[in-house]
């Protein structure tokens, strides 16, 4: 049973069995293409959507799973809504703005699906491996790795704290106004946050000791990575060429 926080879903689909470093780069390139394709290039959007839907189909997880999760970008779309009604001459319907608004919403929706695809098909340790392969600072990658590990511990702790608070947030008299003032509630929550931070400081001390006792000396050390197979290199090169071609084409016709 995976922890409820864990986005990774096991599988043996072609997407899952792709080298994670290749998958990470392909997703980043794909999102970059989405960003570079000009406003109103509908044909290209359709193509990109088809590509990402196809990849989703190949994961065996079901497209509905992706669509449901991808809708979380919707609220932010509000930020672009004013485009539809604003013109240099005041508030009125703006067809160019509408085109732009729909483009932004579509690009965003397609991009977030690519990000979901990455998260659900890449085990975290493979993701770290890919980040290292992309030459992120080793220390930062190590911090992110530790953070992920202790996120589960901390989230469980927060859940317990909130349960404990809820368990004591009752009232024996329904007629009485309950819950104290907003400021009081905020400060109680703040106290919980303070407690959490304090415990995490102690926790980090013990983790530090555990690391020291197994030889940690301040250097971040890892096993060398296996090099990319020739097939993967070709795949990556082909995908990047295709991306460049797509962007060039779309800028030529719609830019």
């Amino acid at each position: 049973m995976p922890h409820r926080l864990e986005p990774y879903r096991e599988g043996n689909s072609p997407i899952h069995s792709l080298d994670s470093r290749v998958r990470v780069v392909m997703v980043l390139v794909f999102i970059l293409v989405c960003a570079l394709v000009p406003v109103g290039a509908w044909a290209v959007y359709i193509l990109l959507l088809a590509l990402i839907l196809s990849a989703e189909l190949l994961t065996d997880l079901g497209i509905a799973y992706f669509i449901k999760r991808s809708l979380m970008v919707l609220p932010f779309v509000l930020a672009a809504l004013p485009l539809v009604f604003s013109t240099p001459h005041g508030i009125q319907f703006n067809p160019a703005g509408l085109e732009r608004f729909i483009s932004i919403a579509l690009k965003s929706w397609i991009s977030v699906q690519a990000a979901i695809l990455l998260a659900v098909t890449t085990p975290f340790d493979q993701l770290l491996l890919a980040l290292r392969a992309l030459h992120l600072p080793r220390l930062l990658v190590a911090v992110i790795g530790l953070m992920w590990r202790y996120l589960f511990v901390m989230v469980d702790e927060v859940t317990h704290m909130m349960l404990a608070r809820a368990a004591r947030s009752g009232s024996d008299n329904p007629a009485r106004r309950t819950g104290g003032t907003v400021v009081w509630r905020a400060r109680v929550t703040g106290g919980m946050a303070g407690g959490l931070l304090l415990r995490s400081l102690d926790h980090s001390d013990r983790v530090y000791h555990a690391m020291l006792s197994r030889g940690y000396d301040g250097e971040v050390r890892t096993l060398p990575q296996p090099s990319l197979t020739t097939a993967n290199r070709w795949l990556l090169a082909g995908f990047i060429l295709f991306a460049i071609f797509l962007v060039a084409l779309s800028i030529l016709f719609w830019g």
Binding site: L139, V143, I144, S200, H203, S204, M211
Partner: peptide
């Protein structure tokens, strides 16, 4: 490393 990882 442990301090920032756990604090994050």
């Amino acid at each position: 490393l442990p301090l920032m990882g756990v604090l994050a």
